[in-house]
């Protein structure tokens, strides 16, 4: 039924481009190839969240059975969030699983993603490390997520403290991303992060 999928995506595209919400909330959607099987989405981090100021790229794979089966969506931009894997970018969202409706459209998906960024659900986590941090120390989580938004999603301002710690490990010869993951996991304590990388 690929023809249904193609026809529908073409139409959805037009809708998205025209949509007011798109303009307001900074949602972008573009085709990655001519076969309508891969899309690239872009959402802006919602205001008053650690993701504010960042732009997050989504990779959207359309199954041949679309819209009867949901698209597979993952984050290309690295992000620190309880429901998004900090390693793979995989997302656990009910509207892309058992709560999928054939009439759901892309701007609805993008809006749901923005809602997820604004309201994480740590009790149904995709990334256990992040979820733990979120539950145990909200401030540390916020700071870490903000730092990731700066490092990967183009947020203009940075936390000098975190940045210098990453820099410190980087100067010791560690890979920058690995250093950031280790620091984020180990409460930004440089010694523990080092041990974590080496173990």
């Amino acid at each position: 039924m690929a023809n249904i999928a193609t026809a529908r995506i073409k139409r959805e595209f037009k809708e998205v481009v025209k949509s007011e919400e798109v303009a307001k909330c900074n949602i972008k959607l573009e085709l990655k190839n001519d076969s309508f099987t891969e899309l690239r989405g872009e959402i802006a981090g919602p205001p008053d969240t650690p993701y504010e100021g960042g732009n997050f790229i989504l990779d959207i794979q359309i199954p041949a059975t679309y819209p009867f089966n949901p698209p597979v969506v993952k984050f290309v931009t690295k992000i620190w969030h309880p429901n998004i894997s900090s390693v793979t970018g995989a997302v656990c969202l009910d509207i892309l699983k058992d709560q999928w409706w054939v009439t759901s459209v892309f701007d609805y998906i993008c809006l749901s993603f923005q809602a997820l960024l604004a309201a994480p659900e740590p009790d149904d986590p995709q990334d256990a490390v992040v979820a733990n941090q979120y539950k145990e120390s909200k401030d540390e989580f916020k700071n870490t997520a903000r730092h990731w938004t700066y490092a990967y999603a183009g947020r203009p301002t940075a936390s000098a403290e975190y940045d210098s710690k990453v820099e410190q490990l980087k100067n010791m010869g560690f890979d920058e991303h690995k250093a950031r993951v280790a620091l984020s996991t180990k409460h930004w304590i440089v010694e523990q992060a080092m041990e974590h990388i080496l173990s």
Binding site: I4, A7, R8, K10, R11, E12, P67, V102, T103
Partner: peptide
């Protein structure tokens, strides 16, 4: 003519 909400035809 009516538009089908699924296939948009």
């Amino acid at each position: 003519e009516v538009t089908c909400e699924i296939c948009y035809l």
